[in-house]
Every structure is written in C-alpha cells, then in structure tokens.
Amino acid sequence: MHKKKKTSPVQKDYQILAKKKEPKRNVILNVIRAFVFGGFVCFIAQLLQFAFINYFGFEESQAGNPATAILIMLSALLTGLGVYDHIAQWAGAGSAVPIIGFANSLASAAIEHRSEGYVLGVGGNMFKIAGPVIVFGTFSAFIVSIIKLLVQAIGG
C-alpha cells in the first residue's frame, strides 16, 4: 500500500470548513426506510414461499429456491425498466442487502455495457460490481473450511 499523503494545515482547515457546509445523510430516516423496504421484500418472499408450498406442492425446505428466483427476475425486470435505481435512492440499504441488490448489480452492468458488444461488453463487465463479492465470498468460504478441517483434525 502506498503511504498516506500528508494533509497540510491549510488543507486541514479547509476540510473542517467544507465539512460544516456539507449536508449530511439522514441516517435515522435511512435506517427506517431500509427497514421498511427490506422488510417488504422479505414479506413478498415469504408470500411466494407460502404459494410454492401450498399451491405447487413444494417441500418447505425447497420452496425458498423458486421464491428467490422470482425475486431475482423481478429485480432484473425493474432494473431494465429503469425503476430500480429510483427505488434504491429512496430505500438505501433496504434494496441493496437482499438478493435483489445482487441481481440489480449484475443486470445494470450488463445493460450498461451492451454497447460494447456481448462478449467484451456484457460478458466482460457484468460482474464489475458483483465480482468482488463473489471473489471474497469464495475466498472466505475457503479459509473457513480449512479452519473447520483443522479443528476437526485436532479433534475439536
């Protein structure tokens, strides 16, 4: 990592001044909105799960998968219709944390880079935002598995 650049006293003074004039994110409002929208998404998912159990004869343990698939499709559809980014501006983390946020990151990047072709454009950029999540998700899963194996080998 490169060394952190020194901030001069003039810069420091300015940054204090600028900070005072910057409007802050309304954290409390954001938390409430995230809770409401995130909760709403989970509520829809729950309804879907019930529907798959009661009307399509799924086992309770398996009904989650088709419900998730529908949410992913809905998210991609709303992204394509240009609605999702407006929802996200309102809902904040409420739209980013559930699975629909992941679907939106893939769909939006794919749409954005369509103009550079299917292979280098869509294929090459689709995981631009979601890529790091997959890389570090896989990597941490690997580390955790090794720790588990080691603990078992020791006889834990």
Binding site: T79, G82, S108, E112
Partner: peptide
C-alpha cells in the same frame, strides 16, 4: 455516470452532496 461512477441503472443511494 458510466465512466466515473456506477452503471446508470445500478441501485446505489447517492449522498446529498
């Protein structure tokens, strides 16, 4: 937006600044 930030349709909340 495409060049400097996120894809246009990406759902990230922008700060008030």
């Amino acid at each position: 937006e495409k060049q400097f930030r996120y894809p246009t349709e990406y759902g990230a909340q922008k700060p008030p600044t």
